[in-house]
Design a protein around this nucleic acid. Structure first.
Lengths: 208, 208
DNA sequence: CTAAAATGTTACCGACCGGTAACATAGGGG
DNA sequence: CCCCTATGTTACCGGTCGGTAACATTTTAG
């Protein structure tokens, strides 16, 4: 641990402002607005204001709006992968437990969402440019995640891991879009149910 | 049939222009661009140009860009519901057949998609305003579709139709997002497989 | 042919947006 | 104390976009 004499490890900022460092405040504010109003629907000025700072300072931390977007996406991805590590830590050598816990956490997130779907999914839709750096970040994350699920299915003893993993992925991804019409709660419950069934029987759905 | 002396039922337009009526050309061009570049990423000028006309004429057919968007969404929705009717016509009294054919058609669409996911899904992400008319159109469509699937599951004899219908919906919706990392072909095949298994066994996945 | 309707052309407006320059202010460390 | 750095403020630029007006041109109908 560091001493607190000069600063507490994070730069402490001005007057009544928050104690959270500016860069982080900007990222949080940007995330909020991006998710609520869409990436293209919010301007940097509004982001700066929501972060209790101004456009100039924002541009001292981020070279461009695109970089801010990318950095935000990176944060989400990092958080999700952190979640995976935690899942692995809590259920070491228990791939079934990881999958089940995963579905439960997802259901909890769904319940707390209501309208306006997945941040990553929306970002993907809002950044059509295939060369946008944020797209690469998302794509690589999705790939890693899917590989992880395949590995889990394999070590869980599913007879066709590629097949089961695709099912899990489709269910998880689909839950977001469906929740908007069916209701997040019900979708979350059914998601947990089907994952439990698949895992408990340790085989693909409806295998005879 | 009408005579062709004055016009052939559709207003015939200028010189080298297409024989397709302007309004339709605009809608098609708008759809192309919306899907490829995102709704907010394309301007009305570009749409008019792609439709081989101009902005002024576009605004004589559509009061605003938002109305054009809404009309485009309406078209997609209408087309999908047409598809459902066709499904019902081809497999009368055979809900299982309808579900299976549905998954096959979806797989075919996925194969022909490659990158850039579902038009409706993207539109939903790009129109965060909950009062946007296009959102209502989409939401009502999703609701009707889901009810339809529930009805099919019920008449197909699934023991828990609400549960099975949610699964179908999640799988279908999720297929779009997943295809971008796993590959549309594989996702499509696995989608068909799981639907077949669920239907053939006439029970929920992994039910013992 | 002629008149009316549809379409094309050009120019423009106001609003917003991403990004930058220049300068003012404040705070902290020596 | 003073200097240096981080932050705030203001004004501005160039570009794009949605939307409209006014007028020219073409197409269609009678």
């Amino acid at each position: 641990m560091q001493t607190d004499i000069h600063n507490n490890g994070l730069k402490r900022k001005k007057k009544g402002r928050s104690t959270i460092p500016i860069r982080e405040r900007i990222l949080v504010a940007a995330g909020d607005l991006f998710h609520k109003q869409g990436i293209r629907g919010v301007g940097v000025e509004a982001i700066a204001e929501a972060a209790q700072t101004n456009k100039m300072t924002l541009y001292r931390y981020f070279a461009s709006k695109d970089e801010l977007i990318t950095e935000w996406v990176r944060g989400i991805v990092a958080h999700k992968e952190e979640d995976w590590k935690d899942l692995n830590a809590r259920h070491r050598g228990d791939p079934q437990g990881q999958l089940q816990d995963w579905s439960r956490r997802m259901a909890a997130k769904l319940r707390a969402m209501e309208e306006r779907g997945s941040a990553l999914g929306n970002a993907f839709a809002e950044l059509p440019d295939p060369n946008h750096p944020a797209r690469h970040v998302m794509k690589e994350h999705k790939l890693r995640e899917h590989k992880r699920v395949v590995r889990l299915c394999k070590s869980a003893g599913f007879p066709d891991p590629a097949f089961s993993a695709d099912l899990f992925s489709m269910l998880l991804e689909g839950a977001h879009s469906c929740g908007t019409c069916v209701g997040m709660r019900q979708i979350g419950e059914h998601l947990v149910q089907v994952v439990d069934l698949m895992v408990e029987n340790n085989r693909q759905p409806a295998a005879r």
